[in-house]
């Protein structure tokens, strides 16, 4: 049992760009990478990338893939979503790590083909301190909305992302206003007039059994589901 104080070994998560191959064509990949670099030369400078090979054929040449990516000043870290052992082996022999995406991502990715980067939905969280009074409307444009207070009857809170209410929700809450079905609504005390996610809604009289509880609301098979928080 020897431990060196200078060297630590621990797991940490990093944000990596994933390049999803549509086919085996490495020329197409090269063109796209050149195009990206031309648009934002500094942003991608030596950016580490992971290649999603789920759509590529078995004959994919991993060594050449690595070369193409490195040729455009990206750093290929590894490949993900290999379909079989053969792909994994060829990737390893080309010096690429074989990676598995987090459980949540691998679930949601196939469900929504090329959506605009989901990160943008979380980029601008709007926080409101205090109560949202009757007649007031708060909108979190392309982000989440946090209300540190209650939302009164006749008030309306809207977000393109999630809505969190640290108080009672008595008015209307509309999450996923631009159609993001993964959006959720959280509140400490559900007494809402109406809740809506990506256009699917419930009226107060449809949630009688869930009222006056801390709740989270999300979409399951195109229906709104209310479950108790904690």
């Amino acid at each position: 049992m020897q431990t060196s104080p200078d060297i630590e070994f621990k797991g940490t998560g990093f944000t990596l760009t994933v390049i999803k191959l549509g086919s085996n064509s490495l020329d197409a990949l090269q063109n796209i990478l050149m195009d990206k670099i031309a648009k934002a030369p500094h942003f991608f400078n030596c950016a580490p990338v992971v290649v999603d090979v789920s759509q590529a054929d078995d004959e994919l040449d991993f060594a050449q893939l690595k070369e193409v990516i490195e040729g455009q000043d990206f750093v290929p870290v590894g490949v993900t979503a290999c379909r079989n052992q053969q792909q994994k082996d060829s990737a390893r022999s080309a010096g690429l790590a074989v990676m598995t995406a987090g459980a949540l991502q691998s679930e949601s990715r196939p469900a929504n083909p090329p959506t605009p980067a989901p990160q943008s939905a979380n980029s601008a969280t709007k926080v409101v301190h205090g109560h949202v009074r009757s007649g007031q409307q708060v909108y979190a444009d392309s982000g989440d909305l946090v209300i540190v207070g209650s939302v009164s009857n006749g008030a309306e809170v809207i977000a393109d992302g999630d809505i969190h209410i640290y108080g009672a929700l008595r008015g209307r809450a509309i999450a996923g206003a631009k159609g993001i079905k993964q959006a959720k609504i959280f509140c400490q005390d559900l007494q809402a007039e109406l809740v809506s996610i990506a256009g699917t809604y419930l009226l107060n009289e449809q949630m009688v059994e869930s009222l006056a509880r801390a709740s989270v609301i999300h979409i399951e098979q195109d229906k709104l589901v209310i479950s108790p928080l904690a």
């Binding site: 205090g130 949202v132 009757s134 007649g135 007031q136 009164s152 006749g154």
Partner: peptide, 13 residues
């Protein structure tokens, strides 16, 4: 009560 709530909103905006 609801109208008072509305006025409180106007006071704060």
């Amino acid at each position: 009560v609801r109208d008072s709530d509305r006025i409180l909103g106007m006071l704060s905006s």
